[in-house]
Amino acid sequence: MKRQVPLVLCFLFGVVMCFTQFSPHQYSQAVYNEVINWALIMAPFALIFGTITLIQTHVTRIRRRIEHWQYSFVVFAGLLTMAFIGILFGPQDPAFEWLFNNVQVPLDATMFSLLAFLIASAAFRAFRARTFEATLLLIAAMIVLIGNVPVGDLIWNTVLSWLPWDNGASETRQWILGNPNLSARRGIILGVSLGVISQAIRLILGIERSYIGGGD
């Protein structure tokens, strides 16, 4: 019951969704639309459950006094403020929007902007042309880096003005992205897509069942 029914459900929904897409018959399309509706109905529950899991994690942190557990109260303060105003007055309430714009936006944007500093430091310390492959990586990175900003073309057009080729930095960047990068990415896409399809078949046939987890 706990293991077999999910496997049967997975098989059933997988097969139905796969085959109804090939059949334009009205009954087939009705089933296809209805099953997608089911998924849409279930999706918000998954999203809310995800947030509950996070709350549980912080409750556990406080209960077990895990290092920096006091900060979990800050998590709850933020969560309750946002959720209280949001649920009570709706997401278009000026107070909710104000909190989003003046607290969440700066926190989110600043958190990720830290990486600009860390990338610069890491590039200085670790970005070395030790091998042929590393040299290729470094050269491509530097060309794209400098070709991405207008100063790249300015330097090219000033320093290499004797070349019969203007805006070389951005042109070379574009060539790298549109040729060798494209080939490598396409290889990855083809490889990953084949992997996705084989994994999907394994899931439908019940060969891959890790999502069921352990136990009975």
């Binding site: 600009a116 610069a120 070395r128 400098i146 900003v149 207008p150 100063v151």
Partner: peptide, 24 residues
């Protein structure tokens, strides 16, 4: 933004060049 990004890009470029020169 892209104009203001130019000096940082150049800085990272220079840092990588210095790092590699010292390494060699």
């Amino acid at each position: 933004g892209i104009n203001n990004a130019s000096p940082v890009h150049v800085l990272i470029f220079v840092l990588v060049v210095i790092g590699n020169t010292v390494f060699f």
